[in-house]
Design a protein around this nucleic acid. Structure first.
Lengths: 248, 248
DNA sequence: CGCCAACCTGTGAATTCCCTGAGAAACGCC
DNA sequence: GGCGTTTCTCAGGGAATTCACAGGTTGGCG
């Protein structure tokens, strides 16, 4: 429709300014990673390394969403949460928590519409969850659709349903995340490194050819028999586009 | 008739503004938890930590419903109730009380249209009770339906009656709450963590596989022999949808 | 045309995730 | 207090998923 270069639906605040996200974690490498990913989404990002800083930043920055590590040096995440809520009663929070420590401490975290992801997470997952939170919180100007569409291919982020030409397609969790990443960047070449960084968790230590493998899986399910939508740019990466656009 | 994408019916006041709820409890973590859950319902929430604060808040905030802990630091819940009634004669009240201390005086109060839940409660339960109170009090714009329907499955929040294809189904209390939560979010994947936070009481410290277990129970009763409505999204969670929608 | 790098995909093993039976404990009702 | 019901733990089994490996295929380039 409009310029093909950016089909990314921006999440905007009512006044048209970009969404603001506060990231709170004491591990600098992690806040760094997240900042880059979220800024790339077109969001404004501020970071804090501890609870006190988080509260200060919340007051000054007034974010639309917060990413909060449950384990902080100065206070427990739930304490921080309480103080944050005093500043920002309605802001949705995405908690980061260690996989094994899913103890009773976490009970209630997702209860109010908040959400959490366990470390190690994939950036795609974090971004998707954040988008969901912001979408549902009403901070976004318009409640954006939860359905991504490229050509006759659709992917519903709420129901996790994927269809091509109206026909339902079953994907595994990893396949789903990979396809979501591709579809959120249609007509854009994504390198294997980008995909690996984005779809696999940040501590993935395996072979880089898992990407090839999963692209192969996806093709079998998405493109099977039909005109292909997933294309290889040899030496560069992969991209997805509608079959009609491909014909052009 | 197929289920729409978002069946969450907003409870609104006659003038179209969101319903207002006052939460009174001296335990900050509890008011915190409740606030999150109620705001997520789309309601406006104010909190107070003691009886005096409650009366002040009632005067200023003029809520449509009150959640009131019976045990408060400065005065007994029934005393607070009296003062509240002077401010808000018709407002329905949901009492919070310890399990063992269900004084019959409180039990008697429910005759007047009020209601109570015992600690520890589940958020699903509190929200449902509140919805019921508000619905019946007439504060809501229109008397909203108390029946949830997904496909040929119906669940009456008032009578607790559940039917599939016209046939009545007996559920236990937990099964009922789980099904209600699913049905209030049709076609949306709910993670085990979300379900646990919402359907089980906030102090539940047990194994996360109770969710799997109860899903199994529900399937036996809801889906037995018929085309299944409860679906597993491996690695993501569960969702409910009408059998016809599933066939698509 | 031949070679190499990049990519594709079949096979299979390890792992994770989920389901469910059996029974213990808690509850509620007479 | 006794009995049926409900909730929950535990553990085994089974199936889906993830991933490594390796051999085959393709495309670009000299």
């Amino acid at each position: 429709m409009t310029t093909s270069s950016d089909t990314r639906t921006e999440l905007l605040r009512p006044d048209g300014s970009p969404v603001r996200v506060l990231v709170v974690d004491d591990e600098a490498s992690l806040t760094e990673l997240m900042s880059m990913a979220l800024r790339y989404e077109g969001w404004e990002v501020r970071t804090a390394a501890d609870g006190a800083g988080a509260v200060r930043a919340a007051r000054a920055f007034r974010p639309d969403a917060v990413v909060l590590d449950v384990m902080l040096p100065d206070m427990h995440g739930l304490t921080v949460l309480g103080r944050l809520r005093r500043e920002l009663p309605d802001v949705p929070v995405l908690f980061l928590t260690a996989k094994d420590a899913v103890e009773d401490r976490i009970a209630g975290l997702t209860a109010g519409g908040d959400d959490y992801v366990t470390k190690p997470f994939s950036l795609e997952e974090v971004v998707a969850r954040l988008r969901g939170l912001i979408r549902r919180s009403g901070a976004a100007a318009r409640r954006t659709e939860s359905v991504l569409a490229v050509g006759d291919l659709t992917l519903d982020e709420d129901s996790h349903e994927v269809t091509r030409g109206g026909q339902s397609i079953h994907l595994t969790a990893t396949e789903f995340e990979l396809l979501r990443y591709l579809m959120r960047n249609p007509r854009r070449v994504l390198s294997k490194a980008q995909i690996l960084d984005r779809v696999w968790s940040y501590d993935f230590g395996g072979q880089a050819n898992v990407v090839e493998l999963y692209i192969s899986y996806l093709r079998r399910k998405i493109d099977a028999g039909r005109s292909p939508m997933i294309h290889t740019r040899r030496g560069a990466g992969y991209l997805i586009k509608s079959a009609e656009a491909a014909a052009a």
